[in-house]
Simulated scan of single mutants.
Amino acid sequence: MKSLDNIRVEVASEEHLKFVDDINDAIDEASKKRGTGIARRTYEYLSSKMQEGKAIIAIEGEQFAGFCYIETWQEKGFVANSGLIVREEYRGIGLAKAIKKKAFELSRKKYPNSKIFGLTTGLAVMKINHELGYRPVTFSELTLDDQFWKGCQGCVNHDILERTGRSKCLCTGMLYDPAWEKPVVNGSPIKKRSLLDLIPRIKPGLANKKNKLLNRNK
């Protein structure tokens, strides 16, 4: 049984370039097994993230255990924690959460005023994101940068994204806004949105049904 105690979770650097191919192979394997998932990146792209100090890697001895990287969009107004992958033999011990937390901290340190977002199909990742302060949002609230969405072209479900005019896919969009941590602006508290706040926009029919039931009970 693997243990977190034996794994280093740290900011990646040039010394970790030797793991790039292993990381991409792990991404491919996970995507094929699930029938969905993150798109494969080029060697040059992932290596640049390591060299720029914009990636998190988990290492046990001389073996890569997990990985994640950060990207910026719309003049650094948005930051994405992307490409989260944990090798199969290291799953179930909390490593994904440790990597996501480290990536979140790195994003907040480098870009304290940026909104942090991500796309995921994994329930476990959604739970981790929620614990970090993310909230589910519609795709329209994420970055409008075409370069970000081009990164989805390598995903097996890209045709769904195209058919829906980039409004939905199998992934769930999640967002963290640093403004939510500022309780008062000009004397008025910022309301933190919950999933219930999003229902009228995401599922208008469900919201109408709820209102009818409330009116009947008055």
Rank of each mutant, 00 (worst) to 15 (best):
L17Q: 09
G61C: 06
R216F: 13
V156K: 15
M50D: 05
D146I: 12
S114W: 11
L144C: 09
N81S: 06
V184N: 13
A30G: 03
K192L: 10
V156Y: 08
P112M: 01
L142R: 06
S140H: 11
G133I: 00
L17K: 11
N6Y: 01
G118K: 03
K218C: 08
G205K: 15
K18E: 08
L95T: 02
R163L: 12
E60S: 13
S114Y: 12
D146C: 03
N24A: 02
E88T: 13
P200W: 14
F78C: 07
T138A: 10
S107A: 14
K150Q: 13
G92V: 02
P200L: 12
Q147K: 10
L175K: 07
M1P: 06
I128P: 01
R34A: 14
E89Y: 04
N6A: 05
K182C: 05
G151C: 05
F139V: 03
I116N: 00
K109G: 00
I116T: 00
L84P: 10
N113Q: 13
Y90H: 09
E89M: 05
K209N: 05
I70A: 13
G205N: 14
R41E: 10
L95S: 01
G151L: 10
V20T: 15
K49M: 11
I160K: 13
G118P: 00
G154E: 11
G205F: 13
R135M: 10
I59C: 04
K127L: 07
K210G: 01
C152M: 15
S3K: 15
I93W: 04
K102P: 00
K191C: 07
W149F: 12
T120R: 08
E44F: 09
G83N: 10
A26M: 06
K102Y: 00
Q63R: 14
W180A: 15
I160M: 15
C169E: 04
P200F: 14
L119K: 10
K210H: 06
M174Y: 00
E60Y: 09
G154K: 12
N157L: 06
S107Y: 00
I202R: 12
G61N: 05
V11G: 06
S140Y: 09
A103C: 01
D25F: 03
D159Q: 12
D159H: 13
A30N: 08
N129Y: 03
L132G: 03
Q74R: 11
K168A: 14
S107C: 04
R41I: 04
E141Q: 10
R163Q: 11
V125E: 15
W73Q: 14
I99A: 03
N208S: 12
Y45A: 08
Y43E: 07
A58F: 03
Q153D: 14
